[in-house]
Simulated scan of single mutants.
Amino acid sequence: MSLLAWLGWSEAPSRLSSRSPADMVLETLMMELAGQMREAEKQQRERRQAVRKVCTGVDYSWLASAPRPSYDLSPGERLQLEDVCAKIHPSYCGPAILRFRQLLAEREPEVQEVARLFRTVLQEVLERMKQEEEAHRLTRQWSLRPRGNLGTFKTRARIAPFASDIRTISEDVERDAPPPPRTWSMPEFRDPKAD
């Protein structure tokens, strides 16, 4: 009997392929919450043992194995968190987990605060999703607008080429006035007999 069959891994690919991305995001986020709650509980227990050891001067933790109190979410709170997790788009799952871990590393919360921080991160992600969706909708709406407004803008813009203060040769010819000497970039041609 192979090790894969014994562990039940041969069934995993077929089970994974039948799940929707939303279900996978939900499961991933809830597994992250459960893992972080276990880790926070472990750190909280270690802090209590360290304080007890300092207070008594002796470590008896190896002698007594008291049942470990385990903090668990209430069913209502779990359902609310699952509802929010189901709204998260798969592309935001990774950033949500990273932000959650960052907050936990910064604050080192108690076990009871972990679920509240998780909810805060999920709300931030949902807000960012709404903002990006709105921005995408506005840019799409702008790109699909008819181009008629630019056409009316072009007809309103008039160029008046003769309203300039720059003198031209044609103005001098029309007025029968002699051009000023050497004001143009052309060489001056004169009839030597005229002098």
Score class of each variant (00 low, 15 high):
P67S: 05
R101W: 05
D83E: 14
N149S: 08
E113F: 01
L4Q: 07
L103P: 00
D72L: 12
T183W: 10
T183H: 06
Q36V: 00
W142I: 13
E108Y: 04
Q49E: 12
I166E: 14
A105D: 05
V173Y: 14
Y92V: 02
E174S: 11
M186Q: 12
A50M: 04
R182H: 10
P187F: 12
A115M: 01
T152R: 14
E133T: 07
C55P: 01
L29E: 05
S61T: 15
N149D: 10
K53Q: 13
P13C: 00
G57W: 14
E134D: 08
P90H: 07
R167E: 14
R147I: 08
T183Q: 09
G76Q: 07
W142Y: 10
P90G: 05
D172G: 13
T183C: 07
Q123Y: 10
G76N: 03
P179T: 07
S65T: 14
R175Q: 15
R145Y: 00
P180L: 11
A86V: 04
S17N: 06
A34G: 04
E46N: 02
R147L: 10
M31Y: 06
L73V: 02
H136P: 00
L103D: 07
T168W: 10
K87N: 05
F189V: 12
A34Y: 05
F118C: 04
W62C: 12
R107G: 01
A34F: 07
E124C: 12
V51S: 03
R182P: 00
E106N: 01
F162I: 04
F162M: 11
I169S: 09
C85K: 03
A64L: 09
M129Q: 15
P75I: 01
I88V: 08
A157N: 06
L98F: 03
R116D: 09
A86K: 08
R156N: 09
E127P: 02
E106W: 02
A135K: 13
R175N: 13
E174Q: 14
K130M: 07
R182Y: 08
R15A: 12
L81H: 01
A66I: 07
V173H: 15
T152K: 14
E171H: 13
K154L: 08
R140N: 10
W9P: 00
G57K: 05
C85S: 13
S70R: 12
S14Q: 06
N149E: 10
P95N: 01
